[in-house]
Design a protein around this nucleic acid. Structure first.
Lengths: 336, 336
DNA sequence: TCTATTTTTGCACACGTTTGTATTTTTGAA
DNA sequence: TTCAAAAATACAAACGTGTGCAAAAATAGA
């Protein structure tokens, strides 16, 4: 491996000052066309690559955006990651994706890395674990703009892109009620997270509006796996309080439920109504087709990026307190 | 926002030289315990954060690993990304994920970014588009170690973690043959990519060994979507040459096939045998359960990271030409 | 108390780039 | 040919950190 070539190397080789080389490379009009061409040719031939560490040390603006998600291996997030990456690419930004693995500690360390590397901005959906938001205050302090999406820190004044979880869960629950279901369970995540709290509130509000009564209808879980879905459903069925319908916050859990209904010959939608959050790849294949609440990933990605870009280019152009709410969609299929 | 605090600020505030501060922060034994504690306390109180751009400019080693995948929004890759990220975190590395979006051009620009930011190493699976491998030579030239996994550049001398695509596809094909299927189609990706070429070879070898004859059995496609799966299968069925079995390289395509078989009342496995590559989230739910070739994501992630770490810590410790081959698994279910 | 040794701190430069200012070279008009 | 203006280049300092070496301070031994 050859040592990497620098501006000074080019300058020495061409017998000009390195400041001229710098200007030539950046197409500064002050440098003579001939020397510029000379420099560019030399740079290309020797595969010169800017040292961005030096550039950024100097304080020049950069185009690096960090994206933090709890779990890349989850179709909701991987969809958004994928879309955001393409969006950013078109606008000349480079996105680095970080996974917090649902851990506050990892999220915090990622934020530190972001500060230390001087990213231009951050788009983030927080970990389930995250109750303390000091690390986002740190980000604020260092003047790095950031935008939350989906899972947010409500006590931080930064733009947020939210999903209408309250309304859609209310509608979904009411739909089940109108279909005649009476013992409607809600399986969801920890209500410390705004997403699950909103869904919970939507569910409860509908239940109360229609004066349904049903004990312990809510199962809160930390993990979203198919195995756990099996277990939760089995426990529900084995309890005194078998539900006749379920609204489930996770596809993976829903898969477990489906597995158990097959095993136990519980018929959907006759014995059990079912609505799940999230887009199922196999939704058209699985029988019966499951009603679902589809997330507007594209809109979330676009809006998040748009807000961050505004913040990066002009921090004052944006009313920071104004949250954006995008609509998810209740698609009724055969499961209720 | 306050201006970020630097080592020099701390030095000035504490009336000592910044070199002492630097040493104190890095627990250098040459600095007095008292002054070190003083510095650390001050740093913590004022939330000092290293400027990694300065550190790296200086040439100190760093712990940033770049991971390039064609598409994050694909369970095979997102699985590996997720696992690699966690693995790296435990070892004190930070992983930035980049998505090439299956485009050579984007891949190239990502490589440039990686060079410009001086990453410590790279783990990469190349885009479908990538035929030219000059950008990897560039990486070599700049002395940044890298490891390929799954989709590789065969003309580049860097460690590769491969899947036994030839053997497993051979086995799968032979299994179908032994089950009595005679017109076995293969739906796969462009054979410029080693993965699909190996599968293709495995398939062909089995077909030839058993002296089967069947015209135009191979469908090559660039995109892996359910919609395309529907179309490809429809075309096959409508052609003179309807297959009685299919080995399909993509879950998404397989979903399309399944959809069409339902629509056309084609019975699996009676009318059509089916084996798909990839792990289906819903594999236990879909009826009939689809036989599949499951990818060893965990092993791929572990091996790739292990190889890269060796390269980073000691470039000579590794025989670069030695490729690792991990085994995928043929799981026979009800579809053949 | 004085010197030799050890411990602690300070100094100065380097990493690669950018940019305001000074200097040199070129150009054009008289 | 001469001189002012314009164009092109050179100079120098700065960004924040790390490190070899020199200097100073503290310690120990006689």
């Amino acid at each position: 491996m050859n040592k990497r070539i620098t501006i000074k190397d080019i300058a020495r080789e061409l017998n000009i000052h390195h400041s001229t080389v710098s200007r030539a490379l950046r197409n500064d009009p002050r440098v003579n066309e001939k020397t510029r061409d000379l420099v560019l040719a030399f740079a290309q031939e020797h595969e010169y690559q800017t040292n961005l560490n030096a550039v950024q040390l100097r304080g020049t603006a950069n185009n690096a955006i960090a994206l933090i998600v709890p779990n890349i291996n989850h179709s909701f997030f991987s969809d958004i990651v994928s879309k955001l990456t393409n969006l950013a690419y078109e606008k000349g930004y480079v996105i680095s994706v970080f996974q917090s693995n649902e851990k506050y500690l990892q999220e915090k360390e990622i934020i530190n890395t972001i500060i230390q590397h001087n990213f231009a901005g951050v788009i983030v959906s927080i970990a389930k674990d995250t109750v303390n938001s000091d690390h986002f205050r740190l980000l604020e302090k260092f003047g790095i703009p950031f935008v939350f999406f989906d899972r947010v820190c409500e006590d931080i004044n930064s733009p947020k892109v939210l999903v209408n979880n309250f309304e859609i869960t209310f509608s979904a629950t009411e739909h089940l009620i109108n279909k005649g279901y009476k013992r409607i369970a809600h399986i969801t995540g920890a209500t410390e997270i705004n997403v699950f709290r909103d869904r919970h509130r939507g569910y409860i509000t509908a239940i109360q509006k229609h004066e349904l009564e049903y004990k312990n209808p809510i199962v809160v879980t930390d993990e979203f796996t198919m195995e756990l879905g099996k277990k939760i459903f089995s426990d529900l069925v084995d309890s005194q309080n078998t539900p006749d319908a379920i609204i489930c916050s996770s596809i993976h859990l829903t898969m477990g439920i489906l597995f158990e209904t097959r095993k136990r010959a519980i018929s959907i939608p006759t014995d059990l109504g079912l609505i799940t959050f999230g887009n199922i790849l196999a939704s058209e294949i699985i029988q019966p087709q499951i009603s679902s609440i589809e997330q507007p990933e594209t809109e979330i990605a676009e809006l998040s990026f748009e807000l961050l870009e505004k913040l990066i280019t002009d921090k004052n152009s944006l009313n920071i307190n104004e949250d954006k709410v995008v609509k998810s969609q209740l698609i009724i299929r055969e499961s209720c």
